[in-house]
Amino acid sequence: MDRRLPFLDLASPTFSTRSQEVHTARQTAWCARTPFGYAVLRHRQGGMILRDRRFRQGSHSWPNMVGLKGSFAEFWKRSVISLEGEEHSALRKIAQNALAQEHIVALEPDFVEIAETLCDNLRSHEPFDIIDGFTEPFAGQAITTLLGLPLHVSERLAADATCLGLAMGPEAINYQAEVNASVDRLTKMANRLLDAPPSGSFVARLISEDYEDRQALIDLTVISIFGGVDTTRAQLAFAAHLFSQHPEQWTWLRNNPQAVSNAIDEVIRMRPTTTWATREALEDVTIGDVIIRAGETVHILVHASATDPETGHDGNFDIRVRRKPHFGFGGGAHHCLGHLVARTDMTAALNVWLRRWEAIELAEEPVFLPDSGNTSPLTMSVMPVWAN
């Protein structure tokens, strides 16, 4: 590893991928050294690497990096997120067909109804924790809707999916037992769904493709549940936090709801739940004056690359400005399969909030997971100003 480069301790629980330390390193070089490989700090090089076929998906090695063993590690290494070549392409194709745009868009009224019901239930409970009260149950019920399951199973499903998110942080080894138990429960659920898929559901659409590898379909269902719940749950909570800090932009968005899509992207730029996208070099690759050796891992930091001054971003949260694309959903051959689901259900939730809440105010300071790997608010007590 190139010792001339700055060093960032991504493994430290006190490290933040959004820190001044990262921004200072970005001024010095396009990448930095870390305990997990290189961190890519600039937008141009991040985009190049995500599209470069000399790199493969790098997350397959994450369990080894952090010392995870057991059923989660085994699941992660064999899932679509870790596969390459024809096997990855085949699974990706059937998942894309199952998550076709017209199918996801048709679910939007259901997502809106879920959000409306949750808001109705919260009106008499102030202050309330927005994660326990809204974002986690909303994300869980949105995924059970996608799966064609009754909403009453969503609480356990959401809790297990949220637990898997702990496996993607720098302190993953501390949660190994819980993570393995959660992936075991989700695997059993996926297995039952494959035996009797609800009509028109995501799993029914998967098996209509006549893919013969049952274990791969089980794993694809589990990774879809994990990503679908964890991303929506955390990004909506981060949105609430950002808008509590920028009330004037919430007011502007209420008057310009057509900008919700742009607002979601700006939330991801400024407070990404997946703080990096990972790739591994298949051969020696030279970028600028840095040689990335075969087998070395690079992590494209989402916030650092999205707020790179070379993109024109000034580092401030502003939903009114059109920006260059971020890498919060990855990119290239491994661009997130569920990005349309996440965008659709988050849009539904935000639109309901805009109608219901004139402002979002914090009742107390939130508590967050470490800002590295996968991150999320742990608690966030809010007191929205309800519209008449």
Rank of each mutant, 00 (worst) to 15 (best):
C163V: 14
A95K: 04
G169F: 04
D110E: 14
T144H: 00
P137F: 02
P170Y: 01
T117S: 13
G140D: 01
V80D: 00
A177C: 06
L146C: 01
Q101L: 15
P170K: 01
A158E: 00
S59N: 13
H60M: 14
I173M: 11
S79L: 07
W76F: 15
E86T: 08
M65V: 13
F111I: 05
L149T: 00
A90C: 12
I81L: 14
E113R: 15
G70R: 08
A177L: 12
L83G: 03
T162C: 11
L147M: 05
A177W: 08
S82E: 04
N121E: 15
L157Q: 03
M168W: 06
L151W: 11
V179Y: 10
D132V: 11
L107F: 01
A73H: 05
A159E: 07
M65T: 13
E84C: 02
K69V: 14
E86I: 09
I173Q: 13
G140H: 00
E126R: 09
E116K: 15
Q57L: 13
D129Y: 05
L157E: 03
L146H: 01
T145Y: 00
R123L: 11
A98Q: 04
F72R: 06
F111Q: 05
V153I: 12
E126W: 01
L68S: 03
F138W: 08
L122D: 03
L91D: 03
P170D: 04
D132W: 09
I143E: 07
E84G: 04
G169T: 03
R56K: 13
P127S: 07
I94M: 05
